[in-house]
Amino acid sequence: MNAVGRWLELVVGPFRASWRAGAGWTIAFVLLVVSTVAFWPAFKGSTALDAAFQALPQAMLEAFGLQDFATPAGYLRGGLYEVIVPLMFAAAGVTFANSATAGEEDAGRLELLLAQPIKRRAFLAGRSVAILGWIVGLAIVVLVAQLLSDAAFDLEIADSRVISTVVLCGLLGTVYAGLAIAIAGILARPGLVLSVGLGLSLVGYLVAALFPLSDVLAPWAHLSPWDWALGGDPLVNPAEAWRFGALVVPALALVFFGIVAFERRDIRSA
């Protein structure tokens, strides 16, 4: 019973502490999804928009996910799931992780907690589970908002495509959350965690979106987690199983690295 209570506190405590940020992200995701889908009837079957986009180079269209914009899958990809939603998941993952780890430590609030009978690895693992909980929660919110909006605004797309796309975006968020935990495991510098985490999120997108425009750089696009997550165009094609694994494994590896580093270093005081 004591062990269960201890573990619950290690997970539920930081989860509860992030509720303001979680509520903010929830509102932002819902507003984004609903407002984007609400404009679908205006774009539905629009040949004029497609014709206007055709004036742009094909590679450019693909880089920003704007091909087939008048189709349901093309509209959702270009409006939500090519850039904004995955970037928001990455940003949410980094900010949740930062405030639960480096932010708390930098503020001196780990001093009293880590003086309690808990292992550092249990402490950071508990926080990692709490962060994962928020990302899962946000993925559910996005999924529900998307499916309800699709039904309300007559956007016809297979639920399975939406589910796999949202899950892949959520997993992309866990990779960047894992990265933030790994950096926080090494150093309690919230500014560094945020800048590197958010910076690499953006770099990941740019690598996956722009490298394919160059014959020389195109093969390197596969180094980006964005390519692993969304390279198969999951709103159009069934997502391959390896893509899920390709995101889960580095996320776990980064958290593990963060825990090992955190075990070995000094804890920063206020």
Binding site: R109, E111, L112, P117, K119, A270
Partner: peptide, 17 residues
């Protein structure tokens, strides 16, 4: 560490709660 900290209590000088 866990066994030690189970048996000690600490009040930090720089208190951040």
């Amino acid at each position: 560490g866990v066994a030690v900290r189970q048996r000690i209590a600490y009040v930090p000088g720089e208190l951040r709660l």
